[in-house]
Design a protein around this nucleic acid. Structure first.
Lengths: 197, 197
DNA sequence: GAAATAATAGCACGAACGTTCGTTGCTGTA
DNA sequence: TACAGCAACGAACGTTCGTGCTATTATTTC
């Protein structure tokens, strides 16, 4: 049972790499087997179905995202600082891998395709947005953002910028330093920041 | 030749409907043949390859978008009014079809898959962003937006909001009236609008 | 070290895909 | 009336996909 978990982990690692570079659908069991130098059936036995593989990959991506972006700041008691640092980690993480966010591509691929994968994507995106909304709410309560700030709308604007930055990087409308994103994000923060008193 | 063009048009119509509801890849020749009540081979003869079909569908989508969104305002001499009305038509158009924008889904599907389809998508998106940038530039020159407005950055913010609205509608973070989009867009306009003098 | 169990490989399947081929109707012109 | 050309069809091809069986190796347990 020990060796099994280990190779399963290795499979998921390369699977996430492949899926990040292309998409969840293009990640076929055959190509993944070739990439991990295993037989199709041997690899297949780990997941019992392609759907389970896709779910496992998403779960793994979720875990990596948490470890790299969320958890490093989970002990930061200052919500405003935590918000800013989290965004920083977020864009740094997705920026250094010159590829596209698997969650974005998977969402546009599965948003019209009912099933467990879509359900998980929906749940995860909802959770992420709620998490951010909470963080903003705390920041407001702490007094670092105006008290009449609409936390949900703030998150809407932020996440839009994230999507835009990623998409427009593709046609060189945005650069690799995400200059447009940071300019717009600064502006977003400043619009809602409490005036110095 | 007359009958040919006509059925080809009908094929493209239903093809666009299907592809809009799912994606360009899910639009298989078999399913499209079933939807148009034709044989696979009969339909195939119109396009000679799946790639040509995909290109034709994108071309048709492009044409519809132009007719519905761009051209109705092409004679509007006031660039600011034209900009606002174009955005209005745009969101109205994509909002009434409760599905997702085919260009967005196609872009995330093909952005890592070299070939003519990706090239066309890249070209079309670039063209659209340039078109908007031009419109904003004219508006600035006309004096309706601040003279130091960065047209490209304005477009970046706008298109981000468009992407965000579409994506977040999926998890009910945005409503069907696109309330968040309009609120953010109003704010965007007002931030760059020339102060009344 | 043997027995038990887990992990992997080999092989084959059915279905779906894009594509090709030969043929059949239909329509308009000589 | 005969013929040419286009439009559409049915059947089949080769390939790839996910998946299920069965055997064989590796690993753990006693």
């Amino acid at each position: 049972m020990r060796k099994g978990k280990q190779t399963r982990q290795q499979i998921l690692e390369t699977a996430l790499n492949i899926a990040t570079g292309s998409s969840l659908n293009d990640l076929t069991i055959g190509s993944l087997a070739a990439a991990t130098e295993m037989s199709k059936s041997g690899l297949f036995a780990h997941f019992k179905s392609k759907e389970n593989l896709q779910l496992a990959v998403l779960e793994y991506a979720h875990k990596v995202f948490r470890e790299r972006v969320i958890e490093p700041q989970s002990n930061n008691e200052d919500p405003f600082d935590r918000l800013l640092k989290t965004v920083e980690l977020w864009l740094e993480w997705y920026g250094q891998q010159a590829q596209s966010c698997i969650y974005i591509s998977a969402t546009t691929e599965f948003d019209d395709q009912p099933g467990p994968v879509r359900d998980k994507l929906k749940r995860d995106l909802t959770l992420l947005l709620s998490f951010l909304e909470n963080l903003v709410t705390h920041t407001i309560e702490k007094g670092d953002l105006k008290h009449d700030t609409d936390a949900k709308h703030f998150v809407f604007e932020f996440y839009s910028l994230y999507l835009g930055s990623q998409q427009m990087k593709w046609v060189d409308f945005e650069d690799s330093d995400q200059t447009h994103f940071w300019r717009a994000f600064d502006n977003l923060i400043n619009r809602y920041r409490k005036d110095k008193s």
